[in-house]
Structures are given as C-alpha cells and as structure tokens.
C-alpha cells in the first residue's frame, strides 16, 4: 500500500503539478491567440514575443523594485511589478496596432496578409527585446522557493518520495484560475464583453447595432497584452526568462488553441492542459513508478520512457497534426468567443 502512495507522490511531484503549471501557462497564451483570432481574425505569430516583451518589462520593473528594497515576501516581487509590465505592454501593443495593423484593417486585407505582417512584428519585437535585455537567461525570481519542499513533505508523511509544491507553481496555477474567471466574467456579463462576442460572431450585424469596431479592437489588444504579459511572466518565473524560448513556445501555444477549437476560449484552456500533459506523459521516465508498483527484486534496465525529452516539441506537433486530420474543428466545436 505504501508503495502505491509513494508512486502517486512521485507522479504528483514530477507529472501532475508540473503539468498543471505548464498547462496554465499554455492556456493563458492560447487564450491570447484565440482572442486575436476570433476578433481580429488572424493568427498572431507575434504572440510569443508579446509574452516575452511583457515578461521583459516586468523583469525590468522587478529589478528596480528589488534595488529599492521593496518586496512582498514570501511572494515573488515580480507579482508587484506585473501591473507595470501589463500597462507598458498594452501601450506597446496599441502602438503596434495603430502603426501596423490599422493600415491593413483599413484596406480590408486578407487574414493571410495579417499573418505575414504579424511574423514581421514578431521579428521586430524579438530584436527589440534582445536589444534591451540581451539574449541571455535572466533570473528574477525571489521570495520563498517552496510552499512545501520535498524534505518537509517526506518528514510530514514519512514517505520515501517527496511531493514538493514550488511557490512559482502555486502562483502560476492560482493566477491562471483567477484570470480565466475574470476573463469569462468580462466576456459574458459586461456590456463591453458581450459587444466583443457579438463583433466576433457577426461583424456586419455588430456594425448595424452601433457597436464601434475600433473600440472592440482596442479592448481586444488590451486583453491580449494583459494575458500575454501574465503568461510570459509566469513562465519566466517558473522556468527562467530567455527570449528565444518564447519563440519556441509559439508552437505548443498554437497547438493548444487549435486542439481546443480555434476561436473558442474554453477550448484554448482545455487545449493548453491537453498539450502540457501529453508532453509530460509521453516523455516521463516511469522507471521508479513501476518499481514501486511491482514486487521487489525486479530489475528494470531502461528508464521506461516512451519518448526522450528531446521530443517534447514533437509531441505538440504530432497532436496538432492528428487533430487537424481527425477532428479539424478541435475538441470543442470551433465557434466564436
């Protein structure tokens, strides 16, 4: 019996909690992609860089606060800096919309033009970020490392395996839950949120109803910048901030959005967790878990891994392809906001 609990603790520590954390980060990212897709009607390739930009601003403010000796122990200072990062990113995103996307909107450019434009924006933003903060790893995490460390857990329970909950993991999961609840409340219960859904559902009828498209576009970018900054900062806190990593995050984020059903915010969240857990489940080394669950004395030579961790990225790619072939509308029937 104790072996089963040990195995569960092991899985919880290395699979469930990291999966929930990573899934929350992907879900927040995919929500941003979905919002742009369903309101502005294009796939925003610059979303990864928007996340990096938001995280970068938050890091700069965090350093400033740390230099001033401001802290909110045991929580990371970055949470205090987050609102500033969000405001800066909103301003920057609106500037880009005004100077780049607005022109193409006026010309009623096709979605593919927008997509290519967004790739341009991605490169410019990427360059800007590396120019400002450099291409290297930045560590900006402070505060308590663990809520429950593996050692405490072992001492408390007497188990062999520890189930640690890192501060960043708890912060990520809780923040994601709060943000998602707020976002859905906004979309479903406020006049502005409903007008966004109406615009995404039927642009012409929204115009006829007196909904101002410029306002809808502006609010969409504000939400997208907010989500991106939060997702980027949480990812950076949890792993580390490295500009190039955010570009690679684009694939799992798009996979999440598509798996869930493009344009459907609930789908984006579900998709985030599906992708995160698939990556972890397929690349997890089950050796110790199996040892706990089998009678003593059985020697297991291999790591009992389905795929090497190098294939992590490939997993989201494969899921993406399978979904597109088998169920192109995604898990949830792709619909508007």
């Amino acid at each position: 019996m104790i072996d089963v609990i040990n195995a569960a603790a092991l899985l919880g520590n290395f699979l469930v909690i990291p999966g929930l954390t990573y899934g929350s980060q992907l879900a927040l990212g995919a929500l941003g992609v979905t919002l742009v897709y369903s309101v502005l009607r294009f796939s925003n390739f610059a979303h990864g860089e928007t996340m990096a930009f938001g995280a970068m601003l938050t890091i700069l403010v965090t350093w400033g606060l740390q230099a001033l000796g401001v802290s909110i122990q045991p929580l990371p200072t970055a949470l205090l800096a987050l609102p500033f990062g969000i405001i800066g990113t909103i301003a920057f995103t609106l500037l880009i919309d005004r100077s780049v996307y607005a022109y193409h909107r006026q010309r009623k450019a096709s979605p593919v033009v927008f997509l290519i434009v967004s790739i341009g924006v991605m490169f410019v933003m990427g360059g800007l970020i590396r120019f400002i903060i450099g291409p290297n790893d930045q560590i900006f995490f402070d505060g308590a490392r663990f809520i429950i460390s593996a050692r405490d857990f072992k001492r408390m329970t007497g188990l062999e395996e520890g189930l640690a909950i890192r501060m960043t993991q708890a912060v990520t999961i809780l923040t994601a839950i709060v943000i998602v609840i707020l976002l859905f409340w906004f979309l479903n219960h406020t006049r502005t949120g409903k007008s966004m859904r109406a615009y995404s559902d039927n642009e012409n009828l929204a115009l006829l109803s007196g909904i101002n498209p410029q306002r809808v576009v502006m609010i969409t970018w504000i939400l997208v910048a907010t989500l991106a900054t939060i997702a980027g900062t949480l990812y950076g806190l949890d792993k580390s901030f490295k500009p190039f990593v955010y570009m690679q995050l684009l694939l799992p984020i798009f996979a999440s959005a598509i798996v869930g059903g493009v344009g459907n915010p609930l789908g984006a969240i579900a998709g985030g967790y599906v992708i995160a857990f698939s990556e972890l489940i397929l690349t997890f080394a089950y050796k110790k878990v199996i040892q706990y669950l089998t009678p003593d004395g059985i020697e297991i030579e291999s790591l009992m891994q389905i795929l090497g961790t190098d294939y992590k990225i490939a997993v989201s790619f494969i899921i993406l392809v399978i979904v597109l072939v088998v169920r192109p509308t995604g898990l949830f029937q792709g619909k508007t906001l």
């Binding site: 409903k194 007008s195 859904r197 109406a198 559902d201 929204a206 109803s209 619909k335």
Partner: peptide
C-alpha cells in the same frame, strides 16, 4: 441572412440591438 448573433443568447441578441 446572418441577421442574428448565433453564439449569443436570445436575450444578449436583444441587448446588443440596444447597444447604442
């Protein structure tokens, strides 16, 4: 055609009609 917001509830459709 396309004269209702299909993903919005009936009441939300009416609310959007009164948006101005």
């Amino acid at each position: 055609t396309h004269n209702v917001f299909i993903s919005l509830s009936v009441e939300e459709n009416l609310e959007m009609g009164a948006f101005i």
